[in-house]
Design a binder for these strands. Structure first.
Length: 460
RNA sequence: GUGGUUGUAGCUCAGUUGGUUAGAGCGUCGGUUUGUGGUACCGAAAGUCGCCGGUUCGAGCCCGGUCUUCCACCCCA
């Protein structure tokens, strides 16, 4: 056998069953997006590099797939850069386009570019693939789908409340119960950084804090020290490491840390508003949980931060994330337009549903009846019946090649069997003469001769 | 980007301290069965041992590189 072809690492082929399951998730999400009033848009797979670069932090820039320019791309590169192997400079010159890394930044670009055609507040959803030059692992791919819903042009905290309900609605209708929607607020993190006099080290500080449940209190403190946060500051954080109780208790402890920080208290106020609203409205199956260590997407989130975890017994990274961003459109030239949105990780949700066996049985709808072919006269008679069946909505097909021996009949039976086609119709010489159809139930093996009308009504 | 791991027939995997002709199950194909699939029995085909190089009289096995898989970091959906 020749060398087998392959696909790039971190990418996948999908068979018919996988496509059906993926589309089930997508349609479920889409239905809820529409019920909440979001309109679909799509944006190109690749953007100008300047649109994407610098929006996700240094780590993000590294993970953006860059597209090589066409033509004589090396002509723009200076000899000095080439000789010095100055990769950063060379990359800028030979690549001016890049594959989209998420859906939020292209959406911000879209809003600014089309601001005169848009009615604000603008609610859009978008379900498209994104690409990251990451090293693949379980639930981590280099090409994967995000399903985003965002609102721009409203500062109202009721948006956050509705997004939490939307998460709950989607996971409830997927029968995925027990997901945890974690919430935090960038203003609280800023406030804490301010209080411990590490305002300029916000990112370092939050990245360290984010690892609390993973590496433990002492190692988090070690990391903070190594990033230059003072011992005095770290001791002020002590209440943070022992946060306990329900939403209210935790907020109480936070207040004691943050009472000197205006921005911190504002963050607490926002959290309390959202929590009160959700408590009053109730959630169907999800849980809302305050998690001060949550620090995702900090490069553009300014208020609420969301992250969704799968039920505890499933080992999977986050299956959704989101937050509020006040400045994203101002980067592209439209200030004072607050946005907030959430994202669903389709591929990870797939893995979770698969692991928990939550896909409905009925989503792969196969052919219902296969007509075996004995010859062209028989095939013509079969095709008439097939056409009638199709007209009445029955998935029917005819085996393309004629049977010339018992061996081939076996082959066609086997084919029907393998494809889980529940009925087979035989039209041979005998049936042709009598105008009947031999209908065989592939599960029971029972066979009966029927006229066309009977055949139609039996299969419908 | 860092560290580790994996790759043998279409699929899932054995393969001893380096030693004749690399095995099994499932699947495929043929037969028992010329208009009846799933079950059974008999038989057959199918492998540049991921790729490139090295050590050796001799490499699936040892060494180096590379690609791939999975895992832990980093980061993230």
């Amino acid at each position: 056998m020749a060398q087998k072809p392959s696909i790039p690492k971190g990418t996948r082929d999908f068979n018919a069953e996988e496509v059906a399951k993926r589309s089930y998730i997508m349609e479920t999400i889409k239905r809820q997006f529409q019920l909440y009033g979001f309109q679909p848009i799509e944006t190109p797979s690749f953007e100008n590099s300047e649109t994407l670069m610098g929006k996700y932090g240094d780590e993000g820039d590294r993970l953006i797939f860059k597209i090589l320019n066409s033509g004589e791309y090396l002509r723009k590169v200076s000899d000095e850069d080439l000789i010095a192997k100055n990769e950063a400079n060379i990359a800028l010159k030979i690549s001016e386009k890049a594959l989209r890394y998420d859906l939020t930044v292209p959406f911000a670009r879209y809003v600014v570019q089309h601001q005169n055609e848009i009615e604000f507040p603008f609610k859009r959803y978008q379900i498209q693939p994104v690409w990251r030059a990451d090293r693949p692992q379980k639930g981590r791919f280099r090409e994967f789908y995000q399903c985003d819903a965002d609102v721009v042009g409203s500062k109202s905290l009721f948006q956050e409340v509705e997004f939490i309900q939307l998460y709950d609605a989607v996971f409830t209708s997927l029968k995925l119960e027990g997901v945890t929607i974690k919430i935090n607020n960038r203003k609280i993190l800023s406030g804490i950084a301010e209080v411990i006099d590490a305002h300029d080290k916000l990112i370092d500080f939050t990245v360290a804090l984010d690892k609390l449940d993973k590496i433990g209190e002492e190692k988090v403190k070690d990391e903070m020290r190594s990033k230059g946060i003072s011992e005095d500051g770290i001791s002020k954080l002590q209440p943070l490491f022992s946060l306990q109780g329900d939403f209210g208790d935790q907020v109480g402890s936070l207040k004691s840390i943050l009472n000197a920080s205006e921005v911190g208290l504002k963050g607490i106020e926002e959290l309390e508003f959202i929590n009160t609203a959700i408590s009053n409205l109730g959630l169907k199956t999800a849980k809302l949980q305050l998690d001060v260590t949550l620090a995702r997407g900090l490069n553009y989130y300014t208020g609420a931060i969301f992250e969704v975890s799968a039920p505890e017994d499933v080992k999977m990274g986050s299956i959704g994330g989101g937050g509020r961003y006040d400045d994203l459109t101002s980067i592209f030239g439209k200030p004072d337009t607050s946005g907030v949105g959430i994202s669903f990780g389709l591929d990870r949700i797939y893995l979770v549903l698969e692991e928990l066996g939550l896909f409905p049985e009925t989503i792969t709808e196969a052919t219902k009846v296969l007509f075996l072919s004995f010859g062209s006269e028989e095939a013509m008679a079969s095709l008439e019946a097939v056409s009638k069946l199709r007209e009445s909505g029955v998935k029917a097909e005819i085996y393309p090649d004629a049977i010339t021996s018992g061996k081939q009949m076996k082959k066609q039976m086997t084919y029907a069997n393998r494809r889980h086609i529940p009925f087979v119709v035989l039209v041979g010489e005998e049936e042709l003469k009598s105008g009947m159809f031999a209908l065989k139930n592939m599960e029971t093996g029972a066979q009966e001769k029927l006229g066309l009308q009977e055949l139609l009504s039996t299969l419908q």
